[in-house]
């Protein structure tokens, strides 16, 4: 798959590495070029610095041939805007956005964007771990 990832922080860089290692074509977009160092020296994907909702920049990043678009910065407003640009202007079939503030969940959903709330995911993973370890004890 050809995948565009917006955000090269902890979440974005980790995701980019996973996907690149799995053999996908990955392009990472981040406002701050310095953040590309998070990807590590052996990252074999492409990096583009600029706003994740800049239409010209996304074209440069090859969005017109992308199969999926993930926007995972720590800024919900930027994620919503990037996600909508991908969905409504470029009609990318799979758009996934990270949402940090639960309040926005329903807005993303109404816009037809798949969401992942990092806090909820992390909390439920930890809960599952707790529950399964306590079950083991019993």
């Amino acid at each position: 798959m050809y995948i565009i990832i917006v955000g090269s922080g902890r979440v974005g860089s980790e995701l980019a590495r996973f996907l690149a290692d799995a053999g996908h074509n990955v392009v990472v977009v981040d406002k701050d070029a310095a953040s590309f160092k998070n990807l590590g020296a052996d990252f074999n994907g492409v990096t583009v610095s600029g706003d994740g909702f800049d239409v010209d920049l996304l074209k440069e990043a090859g969005i017109e041939q992308a199969d999926a678009f993930c926007t995972v910065t720590d800024n919900d407003n930027a994620n919503i805007m990037s996600g909508q640009v991908a969905k409504k202007i470029f009609h990318i079939p799979k758009v996934i956005a990270r949402v940090n503030n639960k309040q926005y969940t329903h807005i993303y959903q109404e816009l037809g964007i798949d969401i992942v709330n990092s806090a909820t995911v992390l909390a439920s993973l930890i809960k599952d771990k707790l529950v399964s370890s306590s079950q083991r004890k019993e």
Partner: peptide, 27 residues
């Protein structure tokens, strides 16, 4: 901030059904 302006307009439209939204575009 353009992303903030867009977000505000969408909140206004979707959550509160405001009839007319006007946004300043910076870039």
């Amino acid at each position: 901030s353009d992303e903030v302006n867009l977000m505000v307009c969408q909140l206004a439209k979707q959550s509160s059904k405001v009839k007319r939204t006007v946004a300043r575009v910076n870039d």
